[in-house]
Simulated scan of single mutants.
Amino acid sequence: MPRPETDPETGPPAREKVSDPAALKALAHPLRLRILRHLGAAGPATSTTLAAVLGENTGTLSYHLRQLAAGGFIEDVPERASGRERWWRTVRGRDVRRPAPSELTPAEQAVADTLDRLRMADDMRLAERFISGTDAAEGWARGSRGLSHLTREELNDFHDAYLELLSRFSRGPEEAAPGARPIALRWFGVPAD
């Protein structure tokens, strides 16, 4: 799968929407989410380097890397290959969206629910870090909360505007400016009543 590149004249590429239940199934595993998080934060890696960082064996990691590649979430880095060693990187510019429940079979709904629970557990860990204040004291944490009365269409427009903003500031470790750190960004909107 080709990597979307930023065009200096038109700006960031459009985010590719991913809502295929089979692709989402590739994400619904805790180790795969850890792999994606590491590749997104640290950049390309091999199964050997990932094994050392994540405390798993290379055979297990190779299997999960193939599953993520089949789902289109990671790709080979051919220019870094040497011998049998394969380097992997995240595929940037993907907008992973959960299909409507009416579009899912019961088995696919169970997978989507598992993915939601895994992501929420990760989000709670991030929230705990935010609350601890250490990163904020160093100037590395920002947050905002708000309340608005929106129609469903306006909520969708807000979401799309957020994705455009995210795309504008989206950089991987290879494109990051000196001194940049990986920053986890989260947004969700739910009815308050």
Score class of each variant (00 low, 15 high):
A14E: 01
A42S: 12
Y63F: 13
S102E: 08
H29T: 05
S102P: 00
P30I: 04
A107H: 06
S167R: 09
P21M: 15
R94N: 06
A137G: 08
Q67H: 03
P4I: 13
G83I: 10
D135R: 08
R37L: 07
D135G: 07
T46H: 01
S144Y: 12
I183Q: 07
T10A: 04
S148C: 06
L104N: 02
S47F: 00
G11R: 15
R125H: 12
S47M: 04
R145L: 13
V18G: 05
G133V: 04
E9Q: 15
Y63H: 05
V91W: 00
A45Q: 15
E154S: 12
D113L: 05
P12K: 07
A23H: 08
Q109D: 13
Q67M: 09
E138R: 06
G139S: 10
E164F: 03
L104H: 04
A22F: 02
L24F: 08
A81L: 09
A26Q: 03
D160L: 12
T151I: 10
E108K: 09
H38M: 13
L163H: 02
L61A: 01
S132D: 10
A137I: 10
E56I: 00
S167M: 01
A42Q: 07
I183H: 07
I74Q: 01
D116V: 05
P182C: 08
A52H: 11
H159V: 15
R168Y: 01
P4G: 06
L150I: 14
H159E: 13
A110C: 01
R117A: 06
P106D: 10
L36A: 13
P2M: 13
P4T: 14
R142P: 00
L165Y: 11
L54K: 01
A26Y: 07
L126V: 09
L61G: 04
T46Q: 11
R145H: 09
A22M: 06
H64Y: 15
H38T: 12
P44F: 04
A107E: 14
A23Y: 04
A45S: 15
L104W: 02
T105E: 08
R37H: 10
A70I: 00
T49H: 02
A41E: 14
P106N: 11
R86T: 11
L185E: 02
S47L: 00
F73E: 09
H149T: 04
P191D: 14
L104G: 05
P44S: 06
R66S: 12
S132C: 12
V190S: 09
R80W: 07
E164V: 05
Q67R: 15
P99L: 11
D7W: 14
D135W: 07
A14T: 13
R142F: 12
E164D: 12
L36F: 10
W140K: 04
H149K: 06
M120F: 09
L54S: 03
K25V: 02
F73L: 07
A184H: 11
R98C: 08
E103L: 15
A26S: 10
T58N: 09
